[in-house]
């Protein structure tokens, strides 16, 4: 057997599984890692930790991984910050990855920071694009100040970044792709100062945002819980998923799970209706490939109107109840 010499260290993806199923965002990141790795002339290596994962490991190879480092152990079934960090850090010190990508999930909002601080490297949060520049350095794009900021980690390695589900497309699975699975063992001498006693999963209400064909999103313009209930009502008559902006979450009208945008969810509906929101880029980057976009805002000069197909200037608290009524009439006509 000949060994291939790579110019750059591998491109890594830290995959995540829930109850033995690999999350969609992990596949999407592997798809993107494949592209970056091909440009770099480097392999894609995926770390998957959990229990009973032989079949999922094969799927990761089909998605684009050259090697899957598989930790298969009952102690790894749930995300455990101390064990996961230790395993990833040790392997990273050995493999010297060039790039490390992780999905912006609850795990991905904590684990990469634990790893980055141990490796003394940079970490960019909630990226909306990741591209290699002419020096083969990863430009990590995040929205900010009404534009796009490109963050780079010029010297230290790996270059670490997180991105939400939906930022990158799901790759085609090719079950004929070759790849290997390398087992990882759980280190025994870990401090165990954190212990997960229980995980409770609640069924989300209504239509799930990420797969919804129609999304109605409300913002600060809803004004109060009453105004928010009208927007919820509009989502219901349209059989749409309800989305929100950060102020709506901060006001307590809705849960963080409904927030669309850079630090929330990425949606790709066919129809998007934004009500009482200003079209701030951090929200708008969460809407990808919508066919038709509509905005309702009481300020004719709102920047949201530069980013949609149809605009209505009106007080949403007055307009939405009328719209709901008219939709009902139309539906029963």
């Amino acid at each position: 057997m000949t060994t291939v010499e790579f110019r750059h260290g591998p491109v890594w993806v830290i995959a995540e599984q829930i109850e033995g199923r690999v999350r969609a965002v992990s596949f999407q990141l592997i798809g993107h890692a494949r592209k970056l790795a091909d440009e770099l002339g480097a392999p894609v290596e995926v770390i998957l930790l959990g229990e009973s994962l032989d079949e999922p490991a094969q799927q990761l190879i089909a998605a684009g991984a050259d090697t899957v480092y598989l930790g298969d152990d009952p102690d790894l079934a749930f995300y455990h910050p101390e064990i996961y960090t230790e395993m990833i850090v040790r392997l990273a010190q050995e493999r010297q990855p060039e790039i490390m990508l992780i999905g912006s999930t609850p795990m991905g909002r904590e684990l990469p920071a634990l790893v980055a601080a141990r490796l003394r490297t940079g970490l960019t949060a909630h990226c909306i694009d990741l591209v290699l520049n002419e020096n083969m350095i990863l430009e990590q794009k995040v929205p900010g100040y009404g534009g796009l900021i490109s963050i780079i980690c010029p010297e230290r390695r790996p270059q670490m970044a997180t991105a939400a589900r939906g930022v990158f497309p799901s790759p085609e699975l090719d079950t004929s792709r070759p790849g290997r699975v390398a087992p990882l063992v759980v280190p025994k001498e870990i401090p165990h100062r954190i212990e997960t006693l229980e995980i409770v999963r609640e069924e989300p209400e209504g239509v799930p945002l990420e797969s919804a064909a129609v999304v109605v999103a409300g913002g600060a313009g809803a004004g109060d819980p009453g105004g928010w209930r009208e927007i919820q009502g509009l989502a219901r008559v349209l059989n749409a998923a309800l989305g929100s902006t950060r102020p709506a979450v901060d006001e307590g009208w809705t849960e963080l799970e409904t927030m669309i945008g850079q630090s929330g969810k990425v949606v790709s509906p066919e129809l998007y209706l934004g009500v009482g929101l200003s079209g701030e880029l951090q929200h708008m980057v969460g809407i990808v490939g919508a066919k038709v976009m509509v905005a309702v805002n009481n300020d004719a000069k709102s920047p949201v109107f530069e980013q949609v197909d149809y605009g209505i200037v009106d007080d949403c608290r007055e307009f939405v109840p009328v719209l709901i009524e008219k939709i009902r009439e139309y539906q029963t006509k």
Partner: peptide, 15 residues
């Protein structure tokens, strides 16, 4: 700081 800002750009909408 391991990370630095390399560039800032503004975007135009296509709609």
């Amino acid at each position: 700081s391991p990370t630095i800002v390399s560039e800032m750009t503004t975007q135009e909408s296509t709609r």
